[in-house]
Each structure stands twice: as structure tokens, then as C-alpha cells.
Amino acid sequence: MATEVYRESFERRTKTVRYLRFLEGLADTQVGPIYLGMWGALAFFSYLLCVFITAIGFGEQVGYNPIRFLRELPVLTLYPPPPSAGLRMAPLQEGGYWQLATLFLSLTLVFWTIRIWTRAVANGLRPMVPIAFSAALFLYAAIYIIHPIWVNSWNEAPPHGLRGILLWTNHFSVKYGNFYYNPFHMVSIFGLLGSTLILAMHGATILATLAYGAHREIDEIEKSDEGTHRAQLLWRWVMGFNATAYSIHQWALGFATLTAVAGAIGVLLSGPVEPDWFQWACRADIVSGLQKACVP
């Protein structure tokens, strides 16, 4: 079989391959070779610095006591500078740690994206994965960098920490008058639910047609009465139309990127453009039955 032949020749070319048999049920058992390269090394060291700075910041908060560190890890938080600091560099304990950690976290994400891009090109692939990843990167940048710079305060960015990020989500929504009424948040949720639905449909369809060899896509795709053929027939029966083996992945990518991009736009418009989304919804007259809570 074509894929088997390719694998064997590939394995002969490398000496760094390991097999982890316990992964058999979950993933390909082959581990390695890994390509590091300049961008990989930069991403790795940048992330290491980010983790190190965060650990120092957390450590200071618990007096470098390992027991307290473990116990309070879920609530330990590296805060951005106070509002009075604006966009200036703050002292380490008053947001400076956060600024450094965020700088290196941002660099890590940029380096990682470049790394995926260069590897995709080197592999002769279209750079769809780094493009998809940039959607998430855009959401990250909107939340951590663009919005704070636009409103002139790092204080609007989320802190680093398990509880901190959850609190930020709540507080950002409360400050801007309930994010559920932000239309871009609505579209983002649409994308989130849509991509989840499409992923579930696709995954379930492929697994359902296993007996007909749908996992051997290239081989059986041209053959009548095989897995892909039946999968497409199933959805045509159920919905009246079907995606193709190619277009389903376009749908999935589209919905998934929509989640991040719409979310980012929603964050960027909050504050400078619309400070109170509930009142926006009142003006847009989409709060049917809730008008009594609108401020005239």
C-alpha cells in the first residue's frame, strides 16, 4: 500500500525514531524525529523565559514555599500593572513580571507560528495550519496587546493564572455591559458551536464508515460503494446535501477561525467603540421583553 511504502522508506532515512507502544490506541506510535531549527529554538527559549518569570512571580507571592505554591497554584495570579501605570513599564512586583511574561509569551507564539510556516513550506504543504493558528494569535493579540494599547492601559489585559483568567473573562464582560449582547461575541459563539458540531459530524461519520475502509481515504475514495461514498449518501439522506471529503475540512477550518476572529473583533470594539453592549442591544432593539432594564 502506498502509505505503508512511504512510511518504511521514511523510517529507513532516520535514526532518531522511537516507538511508544502504549500510545497505540490513541495516536501513531512513532515518536520523532523532531525538527528544532532556529525558530523552534527561539520559541522554546522564549517560552522557557515566560514560564521562569511566571514561576518567580508566583514564588514571591507564596514566599517560595513549595507546599503553599502547590496548594495555592489555582489562585496564584500574575497581575498586569495598575491603571495608573498606563502603558509604562511597571516595577516587577506591580505588574513588571506580568509585562515581561507577556512579552515572552507573545514572542513564543510568533516564533511558533513562523516555525509551523517554515516547516509547512519545507514539507511542500500549503501553509494552512499557520494561517489557522494566526486566527488564535489574532484573538490573543486583540486581548493582550491591541485592546490595552488602544485604551492606553495594560490593566485591561488578563492576568496570568488559572483563577485570574477566569475572573478577567467575567469582569471584562461585566465592565462592558454583558458580553452576551455583543454581536461579535454572538458570531464567535456561533462559530464555536458550529465547529464543534462539524467536528463531531465528521469524526462520527469517518468512524461509522470504518468497516467500509473510510480511513483509507485515498484508496477507497475512487471506489463505488465504499466508506466515503456511503458517508456522503448518509448525509444526503439526512440533510438533503452533503459535504465532500475535501469541503468538510474547509467548513471545519472556516468555522473554527470564525470563532477566534469574531471574538477578537468583539473585544476590540468593546470600550472605544461601544462601552455598554446591553445598551447597544437596547438601541438595536434585540432585547425583546427586557426593555424595562434599558436606560433611556
Partner: peptide
């Protein structure tokens, strides 16, 4: 000062504090 208006100064500290 929790829910923002056009004149609300930037920063989430007041929202955190309120919470």
C-alpha cells in the same frame, strides 16, 4: 464604577475590586 460609559477611565481594577 463597574459598567463602563464613554467617560470611564481604562482599567479593570474597579471591576475586580467591586467583585
Amino acid at each position: 464604577q463597574v459598567t463602563a460609559t464613554k467617560d470611564t477611565p481604562p482599567g479593570l481594577n474597579d471591576t475586580y475590586r467591586n467583585q
